[in-house]
Structures are given as C-alpha cells and as structure tokens.
Amino acid sequence: MSAPTLREDLVELQVDSVTLAFGGLRALDDVSFTVEPGTVHALIGPNGAGKSSCFNVISGVYRATSGRVRFGDTELTGQRPHRLAKLGIGRAFQNTALSPHSTVLDNVMLGRHALTTGGFLSCGLRLPWTVRQERRHTERAVEICEFLGLGKVLHAPVAALSYGAAKRTDVARALAIEPTLLLLDEPAAGMNAVETAEMAATIRDLRDALGISILLVEHDMNLVMGIADRVTVLDFGKRIADGTPSEVQADPEVVKAYLGSGSEDA
C-alpha cells in the first residue's frame, strides 16, 4: 500500500532508541521506529503515552536524553529547530499556530521562508530580484492553497475562517516549505465527523499527489486506521506495538492499553 509516485529524493526517518527523561520521569523510554519513504505513518497511544514528546524530539523542540533521530544521512538530534525546514521537514500544529490577522496567503507564504532570501534592505528597497522571487513563490503558494481548497479565501484573514479551513491553512503552510516529510500533530483534533473525513481525504490526496512521507500523531482511531500504512503504538513512553493497522488492531497489548484490562498479569 505504498504511494504510487515514489520520489527519489525521499529518505527514511529513523527514530533510534530515543529516551527522553524529565528528572525521574521517563516520557519516552527506548522508542524506535522508522518512517519509510512515501508512507503515511501514524503514532498513536492513549493520553500521556508520549506521542507529543516524541513529536517534539523529532522536530527539535526537546532534546533527547539518549538515542538519536536520523533523516536519511542527516542527524536531527542536536540540530537547531529552525534548520529542519531547510532539510525538508514540514510541520503542522495541533492548535493551528497561525497569524490570525494576516491573510491565508500571507500565512502560507511564511512557509517559503527557508526557500527564499532577502533581508530588510533588499525587501525594503524592493530590488528587482526580490520582487521576482516574491511573485514566483506567491504563485506556488496560491497553487498549494488551491490544492487544499483554500482558493476562495486567499485574501481573507485567518481569524475569519472556519476551524476546518484554518486547519487546512496550517497544513498548506507546512506544505509550502516543499517537505519530503510532513509532520501532522493531531490533524483532526477538535473536528466534527464531516471535517475529519475531509481531512482524511486530504491526507490521502497529499500522499498520492506529492508522494511524500507523512508522520501523524492522532487520537481519532477511524482516521488512523483508514489512512495509515503503518502504525506505531506508544503507552507510558514505551513502544508496545508497530505494524500495519490490522496487525496493530489485533494486538492484545494495544487492546489492553486502550480498553484497560481487569487482570494484572495479562
């Protein structure tokens, strides 16, 4: 069930025995998994399982206590977080971290930051090359917005958007960095059933049209089981299962973690 258009520039993301400790608390305990190129990989688990911590280690917000994260040949552990965009790792946020008063297009154009150059003087003077660069990248940003169904609201301030449209703007911004790996933090959080289904379709479209790898953290089991090629399950900071959606669903450990178990020995 791998992506139809597999790109050559894709590399795998390897999370290799990552441990993250806050004092005595182990948020992540020796977690390993690999996001294969061109797949949708889901990271799931009950509340407090360490999904977000894992995400933050990958995106450089937290520094792993031990273990490492590699993206192809590049070591991500220890990289300064803002370098990740340049490496082709895009991130969408759980709480749609957008500029509310800026337009959709302006927000999405922020994603072009690492792909463009120009400081205060060259922007301020509107040197011909900055104007051309701006026009070229705006065209691309508009394409991305239209792909995500935001063509009608390009010039609307984000604050005026529906929740679903704001979420899609956030994804559009992450796509604007031209990622080969897209990190989605709870893309369906706070969405109703219709919006969730739309988001699932969007994610599938992204994988099919762009052929990029997607790592998503998600609560919504229907969404995950519908679109993921592979699922990693965390519980109390430990990896308890890793496999295809059907394998994971059948795993007794996973059932126990989600539904609880009456007996202590299981």
């Binding site: 917000v61 803002h82 370098r83 990740l84 340049k86 971290a97 922020l110």
Partner: peptide, 9 residues
C-alpha cells in the same frame, strides 16, 4: 514555535 518550524531563526 510555528515561526521556528517554518525555518525562521
């Protein structure tokens, strides 16, 4: 956080 993720130092 978002600025950082988009490559802004």
């Amino acid at each position: 956080a978002a600025a950082t993720a988009m490559g802004v130092g």
